[in-house]
């Protein structure tokens, strides 16, 4: 049960649900940029939520499956292909042994996820397999994939393995159903992310806050998993009421450095930051942030904390329903 990396792609890393519990030692959580796509991919191959998958960035890899395996590709469309035919996304697909899976440049979105039934079984580092390249933790030797890497897979859900043996098909095979786009984030729309107040929101003052929410920002090329850097009309804090010292920050925290251009923190964020936290993206809209490419536009829409909680709870409900539906579906 191994996947061989023929071409690594632009920046392909192993990610699971994240390295939680060690931030007090300065260890970044890392984990997926698009947690929705990761979870759906795992659900589709009946993996637990915390199984490790591949996160692909802008240009996907070429992989060879050395044993038969169910996979699911979710997130950005990188035109996955196998045996000369397109591989459908957002549904489980069975690959016979020896299949070469090729992904290209992303035609929509930025990051795609490939889940393999049984999950990637690289070593746990501090309770997680997530790669944090900056501190060289997790994944394969703490780095992005390279040509020739071998990814060990775990044992897949037994029931589906038996089904497959009965079919004994030697070609790429899929199921007659897929994830409804009604529960997927609207990746295609010009990105509007809903956000809530953060600890230093008040420092903006009403007039500057209005300008922040009214303007459209552009994603800077130097954006990465650590932070999405935005370019727009400069804004500055109006009241220096609080003496700023480093304080905890999280995924989706919008920081305002003295440059006047905000930085939205990503999965590989540091555990704390010293810039004013002027807004916080609702967790339900983080996948939209994750799929932005350099040059894309982004604007913020203010919602209440209660609304952000309600949206997150609705998403949880949808994913629970999806898991049940996948288990009951005809394979």
């Amino acid at each position: 049960m191994t996947v061989e990396v023929i071409k690594p792609g632009l920046h392909t890393t192993v990610q699971d649900a994240g390295r939680w519990g060690y931030q007090r030692y300065g260890v970044s959580v890392s984990g997926p940029m698009d947690g929705f796509a990761l979870r759906v991919a795992n659900i589709l191959v009946d993996n637990p939520d915390e199984a490790a998958v591949l996160e692909l960035t802008l240009h996907g890899p070429e992989l060879k499956l050395l044993a038969p395996c169910w996979i699911a590709v979710c997130g950005a469309d990188m035109r996955p292909q196998a045996a000369g035919r397109p591989v459908p996304m957002w549904r489980p697909v069975h690959m016979p042994a020896g299949t070469v899976l090729t992904l290209g440049r992303a035609v929509a979105g930025c990051r795609a996820y490939i889940a393999f039934a049984g999950g990637i079984q690289t070593a746990y580092v501090l309770g997680s397999r997530s790669t944090h390249a900056r501190s060289q933790l997790g994944g394969l030797q703490g780095r992005a994939l390279l040509e020739g890497d071998m990814l060990p897979l775990g044992i897949a859900n037994l029931q589906k393995t038996v089904d497959l043996a009965l079919r004994a098909e030697e070609q790429v095979h899929t199921v007659p159903w897929f994830v409804s786009s009604s529960i997927c984030p609207d990746y295609a729309a010009s990105a509007v992310v809903r956000s809530i107040a953060a600890p230093e929101s008040d420092m903006l003052g009403q007039e500057v806050a209005d300008r922040f929410y009214a303007q459209s920002y552009q994603v800077a090329p130097e954006s990465d998993r650590m932070g999405i850097r935005l370019i727009g009309e400069r804004i500055d804090v109006q009241q220096h009421t609080k003496s700023m010292h480093s304080s905890p920050v999280t995924f989706g925290t919008v920081q305002l450095p003295p440059s006047g251009n905000p930085i939205v923190l990503g999965a590989d964020r540091q555990t704390m930051g010293g810039y004013p936290r002027i807004a916080q993206i609702a967790s339900v809209d983080l996948p939209i942030l994750a799929q932005l490419r350099p040059g894309d536009e982004l604007s913020f829409q203010h919602i209440s904390h209660a609304e952000a909680e309600r949206l997150a709870q609705q998403l949880e409900h949808d994913l629970t329903m999806l898991r049940s539906a996948v288990r009951l579906a005809v394979w």
């Binding site: 809530i196 995924f251 916080q280 997150a312």
Partner: peptide
């Protein structure tokens, strides 16, 4: 106070 919708500060 809240720090996002999955955190407390």
């Amino acid at each position: 106070e809240p720090l996002g919708d999955q955190g407390l500060l």
